[in-house]
Every structure is written in structure tokens, then in C-alpha cells.
């Protein structure tokens, strides 16, 4: 039997399929777009295709992410905070502090030994410093967002971005370009602005972070420059799993397996 986790976020819909031994069999990331039910279907079809199994082979589905209640076939829905915690513990055991930056929110999650959430803090009021923010900045810089990951290399950290309001930061970036500021310095300034914002969430959650094993998940973790900036400000190594954007879906798949087991009657031999 297989277990499916679906994480439907504002930017991407991620699906992870695991088998009865909790091994990842397939994963997929598709853009969410305007119609999230279509994205759910596409991500589901993709993991089934990769695994070479039929829908009937999936014993249980758990959904997470902001669109979690849109997954009609779910056994239950669980928040992304819990799912990312479970997912990262499976991928990077011993993680004590998880930083998750997705399309429209960012979180610092303090973890127990079993991947349980001890405490968490999320961004308030606005989505500055998240995936949407990076998208807007890439647009202002007229570069591909994936190319931004290494554009800070060689910068000395001379340029700070003073505003974290996405609209104001975008015009600030445009002004800096017009003033001839080096692009790598601008990108490093943006990365450090994001890192400073996440550091305040970390500090709200725990002040013990300098002694903790820290990991990062979510789509923004694919941006090595942001990870470097967070690592720099925290003065800690920040570990990133191979597919950071599927961590939440993995956690959901693992919860699906657990919940499926608990709903079945125990039959003694």
C-alpha cells in the first residue's frame, strides 16, 4: 500500500508518495496557478505515473498547505507547520530548529525528538520575505528567479535593503540599479533582509538556536543565497534536504500512513 501527501501552497502544489516502509517512491512539484484543484490532480497524476501505480493502490491521502481543504479525497488535513516538522525529521533526523519559507509565509519551528512541534512563530500581517517577495525582486532585477540563487557570490554585503514592504523594496531595488549599485550587492542585500526577518521569528521561538541543529525547508530553501544569508546571520550551519519544497508533502504522507493504521481495526492472528 502507498500513502500520499499533498502540500498545496500559494506558488506550488507538491505531492509525495511513500510506501509501507515509509520510503519515498515518487515526488512532484507543479505550479499551483489559479485553479488549485487542477494542480492537485496534476501533482497526483505525476507521482502515480512515476511510481507506476494506480490510484486504488493509495491507501490514504493527507493534505496540507493553505489549500489543504480543497483536496477532496483526503483522510484528513493537517497544517503545514506539523507536516514540515514531521518531514524534516524523517529526512534530517535530529533537527531541532526548522526554518520554512514558502510562497506566502515563513516560519520558525522548534522541534522535539520525534518531530513534534514544541513551539512555532509565523510571519505576521504581510508576506514580505517569502517566495512572493523573491519573485517580485527577480522581476525588478529582470533576472530569472532560479538565477538569483548564486548572484550574491562575490558581494561584500555593502548594500542593505531598508524596506521589507514588497512594493517599496521593489522600487528601492529599481532605484539602486539606476544608481549603478552592483547586482550581486543588491541580491545579497535582499537575501540578508529576508534572513533578518526570519531571524526575528527564530528568536521569538528560541534563544538557544546557536546550539541547535538547524535545517531549512520550503521552496525558498532552493535559493542557496538566502540559505547562506540565514546561515551568516545565525552563525550556524543550515542544512537543506535535496528537495526542500517537498518536505511538507512528505510529512503529510507519513501522517497519512499513521492515520490509516489507527483507523483500521486490530485483528489478532
Amino acid at each position: 500500500m502507498y500513502y500520499l501527501g499533498i502540500d498545496i501552497g500559494s506558488l506550488s502544489c507538491d505531492a509525495v508518495l511513500i510506501n509501507g516502509g515509509s520510503t519515498i517512491v515518487a515526488s512532484a512539484v507543479v505550479p499551483t496557478g489559479a485553479r488549485n484543484r487542477e494542480a492537485i490532480a496534476r501533482a497526483t497524476d505525476e507521482v502515480l505515473r512515476i511510481a507506476g501505480i494506480a490510484r486504488a493502490d493509495v491507501a490514504a491521502v493527507v493534505s496540507t498547505g493553505y489549500g489543504r481543504d480543497r483536496v477532496e479525497e483526503r483522510l484528513s488535513s493537517v497544517t503545514e507547520i506539523t507536516c514540515h516538522a514531521r518531514g524534516i525529521t524523517a529526512l534530517l533526523p535530529g533537527t531541532q530548529l526548522l526554518i520554512d519559507i514558502g510562497g506566502q509565509d515563513s516560519k520558525a519551528i522548534l522541534l522535539g525528538k520525534e518531530g513534534n512541534v514544541i513551539d512555532f512563530a509565523m510571519n505576521d500581517k504581510c508576506a514580505a520575505g517569502t517566495g512572493r517577495f523573491l519573485e517580485a525582486m527577480a522581476r525588478a532585477l529582470q533576472v530569472d528567479i532560479d538565477d538569483m540563487a548564486d548572484m550574491d557570490i562575490g558581494a561584500e554585503g555593502k548594500q542593505s535593503i531598508s524596506s521589507m514592504c514588497t512594493v517599496f523594496a521593489e522600487s528601492e531595488v529599481v532605484s539602486l540599479i539606476a544608481d549603478g549599485a552592483p547586482v550581486n550587492e543588491i541580491v545579497m542585500g535582499l537575501n540578508r533582509a529576508i534572513a533578518a526577518r526570519i531571524l526575528s521569528l527564530v528568536k521569538r521561538t528560541t534563544l538557544q538556536y546557536p546550539d541547535m541543529k538547524v535545517a531549512m525547508s520550503g521552496g525558498v530553501a532552493r535559493n542557496a543565497g538566502v540559505v547562506r544569508a540565514i546561515s551568516f546571520l545565525m552563525d550556524r550551519e543550515v542544512s537543506v534536504p535535496k528537495k526542500p519544497d517537498t518536505v511538507g508533502a512528505l510529512g503529510a504522507a507519513m501522517i497519512a500512513k499513521e492515520k490509516n493504521a489507527s483507523r483500521r481495526p486490530v485483528v489478532s492472528a
Binding site: T79, I81, T82, G112, N116, V117, I118, F120
Partner: peptide, 17 residues
Amino acid sequence: EGQFRTRLEAFMEMLAT
């Protein structure tokens, strides 16, 4: 409401553990 639901639901999930 969705933003606050997520925070409250995560808090409830945390309490449950």
C-alpha cells in the same frame, strides 16, 4: 480567516502532542 485558522490549527496540533 485562513491565515488565522492555520495558526490556531497548528497550535491545537501542538497541544495534542
